[in-house]
Design a protein around this nucleic acid. Structure first.
Length: 462
RNA sequence: CACCCCAUGGAGUAGCGGUUAGCUCACCUCCCUUUCACGGAGGUAGCACGGGUUCGAAUCCCGUUGGGGUGACCA
């Protein structure tokens, strides 16, 4: 964290005084991690870090039919990938942090039971068909929301709420409220889809005689067409972004901009700065449409700014996954290739297409480019070029020297450099687009370049 | 159907009673150039509609329309 932001942070903490913030992210392990969940987790994390409070992870696995233990791993990986570390809750290594556990709802049955019993004993709940129902108050309720303001609910037609199923298991609304109370949650930051449910939660809290937490309902993320984004929709799963070679910092940055703004016309903004500036009242109230285009652009910004070291593991993994193993090749060669390619692309997914020819000599030539570039004149130029390059000392096969050679050759034959560049690019890569040609030749090295030119001439001739 | 939330170009947003309504992505044109990308200069495009309040409304109020959410022995 920068000095600047930590100073701001300290000031805020002093100012807010008494109450130490405790927020939680409470996902259900259903097998995938939704982009909307990621944003909710992010906003909770931002608020915790901004206020110097605690960010708690709680696993809401009360629905035995849908939840599987191995799905918890999906949650860990998504949070870790996005860099959202948590202060309390189950850890990936199997340990647990925090003294308000257990943090799996499936392990808190006795706690819920005691709360239900209390309601039963006080006549605030009753049995119906084997299930336990809560006497919902029929009086109006007001939710004081830090983002949405004061919202009044008319509950005259509110049906009684089932809080415990026939099989004895507790229901979401009950466990959610009980855990927030038990874990000392001060701010409930969650999706706006829960806004209407909040009055039920308030009723329960009141029945328990407890003080409700602050609420902050953040707007939802919708599909580009305005419909609710669900599991199956494109871009819904965080794991997909990772697989496609998006950078976590870019995804996180984009998510920050959905419903929140630094208000100074900037888009690419360091997370430390977001932490320093983020606050609940400034979160927007309207839903946002998910825009893959903008994420793509932001990713490009981060991609170009990233170091080779940062990109290398992801690049190798994506290439490997696409049938282009890179373990065998010289690490320096790999990094040099990646360095000149990364300037031209925005997403890891583009790497196989842009890098495969670095690692194999038997690539195909783009048919349309062949027709356009390997003309009789083009091939003649390629031959001249090959002859000239053959005379360069392999040690002096550098971008600047090569540029001089190309220019000299062009001048000598009264042509533009492009007349040599395009045939050369096609010959050594099989493609009409790619990195800066001089750098490409330098990275490939003299031997490869000459051999590929020979191959191209041979193929074009046959 | 009931209740709740929302409403600035195609998308994300700034604006919080007086602005030629700003910025970013996308799109288009041009420049740079070695293809692509970057970068630079322009352009198309917006306050959903109707009433109020006010000297004055994108900004405040009401209604309509549109979108979203909740109304589960899912979470």
């Amino acid at each position: 964290m920068s000095q600047h932001s930590s100073r701001l942070l300290k000031r805020y903490t002093l100012k807010s005084g008494m109450e130490s913030v405790r927020v939680r992210f409470a996902p259900s392990p259903t097998g995938m991690f939704h982009i909307g969940s990621a944003r909710t987790a992010l906003f909770n994390w931002l608020y915790a870090r901004h206020t110097g409070g605690a960010f708690i992870l709680r696993i809401e696995d009360t629905d035995a039919a849908r939840n599987k233990p191995e799905y918890v791993e999906v949650i860990f990986q998504a949070l870790q990938w996005l860099g959202l570390n948590w202060d309390e809750g189950p850890q990936p290594d199997g340990t647990v942090k925090g003294d308000k556990g257990p943090y799996f709802q499936s392990q808190r049955a006795s706690i819920y039971k005691s709360y239900v019993d209390r309601l039963l004993a006080e006549g605030k709940a009753y049995e119906s068909d084997g299930a336990i129902k809560f006497h919902t108050p029929k009086t109006p309720a007001i939710v004081h929301d830090l983002i949405c303001g004061d919202i009044q609910f008319d509950r005259t037609n509110e049906p009684d709420l089932v809080i415990q199923r026939k099989d004895g298991s507790p229901v979401f609304h009950l466990v959610n409220v009980v855990d927030d109370l038990e874990m000392g949650i001060t701010h409930v930051i969650r999706g706006e889809d829960h806004l209407s449910n909040t009055q039920k939660h308030l009723a329960l809290i009141e029945a328990f005689g407890a003080k409700p937490p602050h609420y902050a309902h953040i707007p939802l993320i919708l599909n580009p067409n305005g419909s609710k984004m669900s599991k199956r929709d494109e871009g819904a799963s965080i794991a997909d972004y990772r697989n496609q070679g998006y950078l976590p910092e870019a995804v996180r940055n984009y998510l920050c901009l959905l419903g929140w703004s630094p208000k100074d016309n900037r888009e690419v903004i360091a997370i430390d700065e977001v932490v320093a500036k983020f606050d609940l009242p400034q979160v927007n109230r309207s839903n946002a449409h998910f825009d893959l285009n903008k994420l793509f652009w932001i990713n490009g910004e981060y991609f170009r700014a990233a170091t080779i070291e940062a990109l290398e593991p992801m690049a190798r993994e994506i290439l490997e996954r696409n049938g282009i193993p890179t373990d065998g090749c010289d690490p320096a060669y790999f990094r040099a290739a990646l360095a000149i390619v990364k300037e031209k692309i925005k997403l890891g997914r583009e790497l196989p297409e842009w890098m495969s020819y670095f690692f194999r000599d038997d690539f195909d030539f783009e048919p349309t480019a062949v027709k356009k570039v390997f003309t009789p004149e083009g091939l003649a130029n390629l031959a001249r070029l090959r002859q000239r390059l053959a005379q360069i000392d392999a040690a002096k096969f550098s971008a600047t020297d090569l540029e001089n050679e190309f220019k000299a050759l062009a001048a000598a034959t009264g042509q533009k450099v492009g007349a040599f560049i395009h045939p050369a690019r096609l010959a050594v890569s099989g493609r009409s687009v790619g990195p800066s040609l001089y750098h490409l030749l330098e990275v490939l090295g003299k031997d490869r370049v000459l051999a590929r030119m020979d191959r191209a001439e041979k193929q074009a001739g046959s």
